[in-house]
Design a protein around this nucleic acid. Structure first.
Length: 356
DNA sequence: AACCCGCACAACCGCCCCGGA
DNA sequence: GTCCGGGGCGGTTGTGCGGGT
């Protein structure tokens, strides 16, 4: 049984908004506000539009201070960084770009930015293939950095002890056995337990952080990202806070290479963090963009994927892979950390190309 | 000039979350 | 505690436009 429609579809107009409709809606909202009920709004003002459509039109076009087009390099970087870190949470990304809407950013990403990044990545691949400058030593160094990044990104759930991690590694046939246990980064302060699927929470958090990516805005820490070393002491709120601080530091860094080297972001804190072990049903595979990055990495620099075969090893069904490779005690963060570690490295490589 | 194709973006759809009854 | 409806979100589709053939 389907859900009841929010409006009478037969009696509402669809398609592009006319200037008259725009003017009518804008004028009504400016005079009366939305009344807290978008569904009722078009009826009140006698507009033959779905309430949701009115909401979208207002939010994306009619409300004041909306910017369209003309994304700056800085905005590109912010979008890329946040996409890498939190994925396609367009509303959260939009919250960091004043005057931009989630729809705008989403379109911009899908139509231009994604292609821009992949195009440049391909060029670089081509250049690398034609160049013999990359020595085996360099490759090994990169591999080492990669593993270090991954180690830094590991996080334990409150219920998983270090022996759990050993058990995870032992149970996972793909986990590189010569690796040490993940270093669990400690987090500075504590607060209540948020839901990581809670966009409103995340948005509040971002606003709390000043809504800008700037060193000066980080009042809570006076611009200093604290070191962490005892994860269990900290709540998810703390993890999120830490993550955001990392983001601030990352985005405001002058040199994207420094960004890459300085960030062991807690990407694993992005969502699905329930602290009670893995929830396979909520695990997301890589987006097609991420999948393409993985594919390119396999082609271009397979050593990067050493130990991470499960991310791409011949099995195209992500859900199926998860069920095969994940022991039940593994927190989803653990896996996402792995995914993020690799994707971040690859994507930060690409971020460099955005430098003028 | 006509047609085709790709791109950009506006708008819609369907799902999920959350708050109130 | 459950149900319901509205709000919000991300993914997808539709459409117009411009450039190329």
């Amino acid at each position: 049984m389907g859900r009841a429609p929010c409006c009478d579809k037969a009696n509402v107009k669809k398609g592009p908004w006319s200037p008259e409709e725009d003017a009518e809606l804008k004028s009504y909202i400016e005079q009366h506000g939305t009344g807290g009920n978008w569904i009722a709004l078009p009826q009140k003002m006698g507009l033959k539009r779905c309430g949701k459509s009115c909401r979208l039109r207002w939010l994306n076009y009619l409300r004041p201070n909306i910017k369209h087009g003309g994304f700056s390099e800085e905005e590109d970087k912010i979008i890329c960084s946040l996409y890498i870190s939190i994925g396609s949470r367009w509303s959260i990304i939009a919250a960091q770009l004043p005057g931009r809407t989630d729809n705008d950013i989403k379109n911009y990403w899908n139509t231009r930015l994604k292609k821009k990044l992949l195009g440049k990545q391909r060029k670089e691949q081509h250049a690398r293939r034609n160049s013999s400058s990359q020595t085996k030593q360099e490759m090994l160094m990169r591999k080492g950095m990669m593993r270090e990044n991954i180690n830094n990104q590991m996080v334990s759930s409150s219920s998983s002890s270090s022996s759990d991690h050993n058990s995870i590694i032992n149970q996972n046939p793909f986990w590189p056995h010569d690796e040490q246990l993940p270093v669990l980064p400690p987090i500075p302060y504590s607060n209540q337990e948020p839901s990581f699927n809670d966009h409103a929470y995340f948005r509040k958090l971002l606003i709390k952080l000043g809504g800008k990516f700037s060193d000066n805005d980080d009042q809570q820490t006076n611009g200093v990202i604290p070191e962490i070393n005892n994860l269990d002491q900290y709540s998810l709120d703390d993890l999120m806070m830490y993550h955001q601080q990392q983001q601030i530091s990352m985005i405001s860094a002058a040199d994207p290479v420094d960004v890459l080297n300085s960030t062991s972001t807690l990407a694993e804190t992005k969502y699905n963090m329930d602290g009670n072990g893995i929830d396979v049903s909520t695990l997301q595979g890589p987006s097609s963009f991420e999948a393409e990055l993985i594919e390119q990495m396999m082609y271009n620099d397979p050593q990067k994927l050493d130990g991470l075969e499960f991310l791409c090893g011949g099995n195209s069904d992500w859900g199926e892979m998860n069920s095969l490779i994940l022991p039940p005690v593994v927190n989803s963060n653990y896996v996402e950390g792995l995914q993020q570690g690799m994707l971040q490295e690859c994507a930060f490589d690409q971020l460099r190309y955005l430098e003028p």
